[in-house]
């Protein structure tokens, strides 16, 4: 184990996989000479050269298509979105080609591509640069969607994503890049896609969160412990395929559920989780599922309004108390 930042963990994953497999290459805007808008690709051009670290023009639809074309005939591209906000410019390529090609061709073509970059709420970057993008992708059959919360997950999940033979949407976070944590240095260390993790054991209520919301929920859990409430924290890590077993297992234990998500709630991750928990574990629930979501507005620029847009610790704590109080707890 070494202590490193989330950014360094991603860089290590890319470097190890590029060393391991000559077909892996990185492509995107300013990933080479500039070493990435957030320096995730630092040093890669120097080690692997311009054939495997490809700087592109500013054309997300174009270079995503290039990645897909290369993946169809033998390479394993890692496409960097400078920010995931721009991935919607490439949405047609991702949804209509990457996600469907294996299916449409009756299994003739694989598209082993990773499309990665930062997304979700950032610090005063405002409406077009600070938004939760995963909803655009996890609805689409044929895509896998990953949101790694810790440096260890960032490394282990990125490596699994690169080794996967299917298109993987891998959304990081600007605010988490400097976060430090323990990361295994073993080049064989991977975390399988589709496996959730219980980050904190508890017995009174399950709280599901990921990325920045998980860190916030963690603080709430510590605070509520002082009030005698025992919160179990579950991080899905991969949103699709979703590890429903771990989530259902936790709900069967605690009988109460709160889902926290940064994005606007309508048809969001909380809706989906509440839905399958109700379908599969209705009789285990002692209270209605609560969702704590972002407000139904684009991200405002002003600091005070920005705070109001995303779920606060107070809102999360209030929801937890409500579900626990609903049954006299």
């Amino acid at each position: 184990m070494a202590v490193m930042t989330y950014r360094e963990a991603l860089n290590m994953a890319l470097r190890e996989e590029m060393r391991r497999d000559g077909r892996v290459f990185v492509i995107g805007e300013e990933v080479g000479l500039y070493e990435g808008a957030y320096k995730v690709t630092q040093g890669l051009l120097k080690e692997f050269g311009p054939r495997r670290v490809v700087d592109t023009p500013i054309c997300e639809s174009g270079f995503t298509g290039v990645g897909i074309g290369a993946a169809m005939v033998g390479l394993r591209p890692v496409v960097e979105m400078m920010t995931f906000n721009f991935a919607i410019i490439a949405l047609d390529q991702i949804v209509n080609t990457a996600a469907k090609l294996h299916y449409m061709s009756g299994g003739q073509f694989n598209v082993p591509i990773v499309i990665r970059g930062p997304g979700g709420p950032a610090a005063q970057l405002a409406a077009q640069h600070s938004q939760s993008m995963e909803t655009y992708f996890y609805h689409v059959p044929g895509l896998k969607v990953v949101r790694p919360t810790t440096p260890m997950d960032a490394k282990g999940l990125l490596k699994s994503s690169i080794r996967d033979d299917n298109p993987v949407i891998f959304i990081e976070s600007e605010t988490l890049y400097p976060v430090k944590g323990e990361v295994p240095e073993d080049p064989d260390f991977v975390i399988p896609l589709g496996k959730a993790v219980v980050r904190r054991e508890g017995k009174d209520v399950t709280v599901i969160a990921y990325m920045g919301m998980m860190y916030r929920a963690m603080e709430v859990a510590e605070d509520l412990a002082k009030e005698g409430l025992s919160v179990e924290l579950v991080d899905p890590r991969t949103l699709r395929p979703m590890d429903t077993e771990t989530i259902i297992g936790s709900v069967r234990k605690t009988h109460r559920l709160v889902v926290v998500e940064a994005g606007a709630g309508f048809a969001g991750m909380g809706s989906e989780i509440a839905s399958f928990v109700t379908e599969q574990a209705f009789d285990d629930l002692d209270a209605p599922v609560e969702r704590v979501t972002g407000a139904n507005a684009p991200m405002p620029y002003a600091r005070n309004l920005e705070k109001l847009k995303t779920p606060s610790k107070d809102k999360i704590a209030a929801a937890v108390r409500r579900v626990c109080g609903a049954n006299g707890g």
Partner: peptide, 21 residues
Amino acid sequence: LGANGVLAAGCVLAPGVGLSI
């Protein structure tokens, strides 16, 4: 490598195929 129901999609896939070649 496929017909494509989205016009001009092949125009961006082709350079990717070219990279692989």
